[in-house]
């Protein structure tokens, strides 16, 4: 089976700093991948490069056999890769439903209609369906600015699902959410995502969540991949234990300060 995403020798330098060095990753259909690594290990840089927010210094990104290396975010989205954000990227002055309807109407066409009304029954229905899938339909008419962190995260992911991506990249879906709510949130996310059949890659610091949801783990350390394989194997590797898992435990204990 061919991979849907092939990343070859991807490198990003900021001046003399190597934010990501020589990254090689293949992603296949139906995979659920967790990306682990301490802060500054290059995880978000990697996601930013794949989704076109950052231009790689060198290397190649192939998606469904097309070269998307130099694509801007909107073309990456149209190609079928969507993402969520560490800090939810929403339209705070509009309501949840409006956010969703905008997502639907903008993904429908690169040239949104100028004279047809945004609010119509079909778009509203579609929006509600997605909101229900993510269990946030009860907030439909609330302004985004009034929402709790967890709801924002879900809406952020729900909006990324609207264009029916075949690959979904989630940047720390559980960050900023209280520990006791993390599993519930991930259950909802995975439930919503799995229905679509998209391959999913998520960045995560909590190893319990990684173990429970991922069937493959990629470990980053100082801009490089130090381990890549089935979840149980990677988490048992000595280097991973030493550099990442251990650090992340420390990171969580002092989390109050770093958050």
């Amino acid at each position: 089976m061919n991979p849907i995403l092939e990343v070859k020798n991807l490198t990003k330098n900021f001046g003399a700093v190597v934010a990501a060095g020589d990254i090689n990753v293949d992603i296949y259909e139906n995979e659920i991948i967790a990306v682990i690594g301490s802060n500054g290990a290059g995880k978000t840089t990697f996601v930013n490069m794949v989704t076109g927010y950052l231009k790689p210094s060198s290397g190649k990104i192939l998606f469904e056999d097309a070269d998307i290396t130099a694509y801007p975010p909107r073309k990456v989205t149209r190609a079928g890769i969507c993402r969520s954000f560490q800090i939810a990227q929403l339209f705070p002055e509009l309501s949840v439903l409006e956010n969703m309807m905008i997502a639907f109407s903008l993904t429908a066409s690169r040239w949104p209609s100028v004279l047809q009304p945004l609010r119509n029954n079909k778009t509203a229905e579609n929006s509600f369906t997605v909101l229900k899938n993510f269990n946030i339909d009860m907030y439909a008419n609330d302004p985004v600015a009034s929402l709790a962190q967890g709801v924002r995260k879900l809406l952020d992911i729900a909006m990324a699902m609207v264009s029916k991506p075949s690959l979904l990249l989630l940047d720390e879906p559980t960050s900023g959410v209280a520990i006791e709510e993390k599993f519930e949130l991930m259950d909802t996310v995975m439930n919503g995502v799995l229905q679509s059949g998209a391959s999913t890659m998520f960045i995560e610091h909590d190893m319990d969540i990684v173990e429970r949801y991922a069937n493959r783990v990629i470990a980053f350390y100082e801009g490089r991949i130090i381990a890549d394989g089935p979840t149980a194997e990677v988490l048992q590797e000595p280097t991973v234990k030493e550099f990442i898992v251990g650090e992340d435990i420390a990171h969580q204990e002092g989390g109050g300060l770093n958050a």
Binding site: P72, P73, R74, T77, Q89, L90, F91, L94, A103, T107
Partner: peptide, 12 residues
């Protein structure tokens, strides 16, 4: 409100 999100919805 948010240019980044607009871009990631696929519209320039």
């Amino acid at each position: 409100d948010n240019e980044v999100r607009v871009e990631y919805l696929g519209v320039a």
